[in-house]
Design a protein around this nucleic acid. Structure first.
Lengths: 108, 108
DNA sequence: TATATTTGCAACCATAGAGTTGCATATTTA
DNA sequence: TAAATATGCAACTCTATGGTTGCAAATATA
């Protein structure tokens, strides 16, 4: 499942990395200081995020600056859209009402 | 990481289950017919989804109907919001422009 | 009541993945 | 040029997880 954005987001450390980098671009070393794991572990997380294009890189001398790539994150939003009608429109309240009525008359 | 909604969504089979159940409530048996894995495997996926409250259950005789719970899915949308400004507002275009200018003058 | 159906739980196995350490490469600095 | 710094890659370990099979419990049906 290499390159799968859902898999990439699943890890809490990677989510924290995304939040940090979205705030402003950073190098792996600077990033690693925010966590209590090794630099290599953080680098592996960065690689996962870069593989699915959630990060873009930009080399400056011996440093590599990683940037947040919003384009890929939009895929998430797109996937979520198919569920949004379930909590946004008025039919949802009706559905929930019917479910609750059923539950009340048929408790486990 | 039991009960972690991000972890739950990470598996492609579980995402498919969510889409099916969001369309209409189903029993584990009916659900398992849509996949080429065993019923027990599907049941374990259901358990993961139910543990983090993405599904609610409703017993009817010996059958259990599983329903999609939109409330929990909203947590996702909430998490995404912190990134939305990166692709929604006009500053994003400016950021990208600056990144691209840097990249052009400093290729790897 | 005896049998079939639906489901959950437990034990087991194989693989993926997150962490570590060690090392090689590229670049900056003394 | 030699040393220090920033980074990536490879090998290894340990645990989490997705899959399987077998079985028990609850409910429906003959």
């Amino acid at each position: 499942m290499k390159g799968d954005i859902f898999q990439a987001i699943a890890d809490p450390t990677r989510r924290a990395i995304l939040v940090l980098i979205a705030t402003h671009a950073m190098t792996p070393n600077a990033l690693a200081e925010h966590f209590d794991t090794s630099r290599q572990a953080v680098s592996k997380h960065i690689k996962v995020l870069a593989d699915c294009e959630l990060l873009t890189q930009h080399k400056v001398g011996r440093e590599i600056h990683y940037y947040f790539n919003p384009v890929k994150m939009k895929e998430f939003d797109h996937w979520l859209e198919q569920f949004k009608k379930h909590w946004e429109d008025r039919f949802n309240q009706l559905d929930q009402l019917l479910i609750n009525l059923n539950s009340d008359s048929n408790e486990k």
